[in-house]
């Protein structure tokens, strides 16, 4: 118990890590997040709106896939963020394990549901695209399968961090799991590719054509950047809420302690 308390209290930062520890202060973080968040949200929504309108109404349809190709403007950013989110989760976990950074613990816990949501969007849009293209809602394509495994890695992390009575234990266990997961991710990806090439010859790939038409690339870049900013805004908002929640819980506990001490209820 003593160790758990000392781990969450601000320790003297080791030499060389001061740059990072500037952001360890939750108060400073809250002020910064409060200032950045509205801009981030607005920019993310605006970029996504421009990209989506451009992609859905003005960009050309594909000569082979027709209008179904427009799912790409949602699907591809979601796929990028699904994997980028897991790397962010792993980085936050590594920082949490090495420097025992309370904010990094919270960040890892808050990144996971957002990443899982983007992974789910990627899977659902992929399945919607697959129905007209491949004639099936689900094809055991290497890419689909590895994203599905990634989705379960996210779910495992979410379930694990919330399964402990003491939140600190959940953070530690989740951080270890995320690092094991990120190290295994390339192997899983490779093995699924290998499995797919063995079981069936190469099917239609999403980008079979050598390059993408520039008129399709621009809206995609807009939606990708917009979705990235929305991802960041969601994580920041959740993180600020988690910091505040922690503070409120500490205040409530302190009030309860004072109350007990004054009234002598627990004599």
């Amino acid at each position: 118990m003593l160790r758990a308390v000392s781990a969450s209290s601000p320790l003297a930062p080791p030499r060389g890590a001061r740059g990072l520890h500037r952001f360890a202060n939750p108060g400073r973080f809250l002020r910064l997040a409060g200032r950045v968040l509205p801009w981030l949200t607005a920019a993310g929504l605006a970029l996504s709106a421009v990209g989506l309108v451009w992609g859905l109404f003005f960009a050309p349809a594909d000569w082979q896939q027709g209008d179904a190709v427009r799912i790409m403007y949602v699907h591809v950013p979601a796929a990028w963020l699904a994997s980028a989110g897991y790397f962010a989760l792993a980085i936050a976990s590594a920082v949490a394990l090495v420097w025992r950074h309370p904010l990094a613990d919270l960040a890892a816990v808050e990144i996971a549901p957002v990443g899982a949501a983007f992974t789910a969007i990627c899977l659902i849009t992929g399945s919607l695209w697959g129905k007209p293209m491949w004639g099936a809602w689900w094809v055991w394509d290497a890419r689909l399968t590895s994203v599905l495994v990634l989705f379960f890695l996210y779910l495992g992390h979410i379930a694990l961090t919330r399964a402990f009575d003491s939140p600190e234990r959940g953070y530690r266990a989740g951080a270890i799991l995320a690092l094991v997961g990120v190290v295994n991710l390339p192997i899983i990806k490779f093995s699924v590719d290998w499995w797919n090439t063995l079981h069936q010859p190469a099917t239609i790939s999403l980008f079979g054509a050598p390059t993408m038409y520039i008129g399709m690339l621009w809206p995609l870049l807009f939606t990708a950047l917009g979705a990235t900013l929305i991802f960041a805004a969601l994580v920041l908002a959740r993180l600020s809420a988690a910091v505040l929640e922690r503070r409120i819980r500490a205040l409530l506990a302190a009030t309860a302690r004072d109350y007990v001490a004054e009234e002598g209820h627990l004599a």
Binding site: V149, L155, L160, A163, F164, A173, F190
Partner: peptide, 22 residues
């Protein structure tokens, strides 16, 4: 990793099976 978790036995397959894919 699940040591000390509530319902660790249910959680365990969710953690181990995706990693066992390769």
């Amino acid at each position: 990793i699940v040591l000390g978790a509530r319902r660790g036995g249910v959680l365990l397959p969710l953690l181990v099976l995706p990693l066992a894919v390769p």
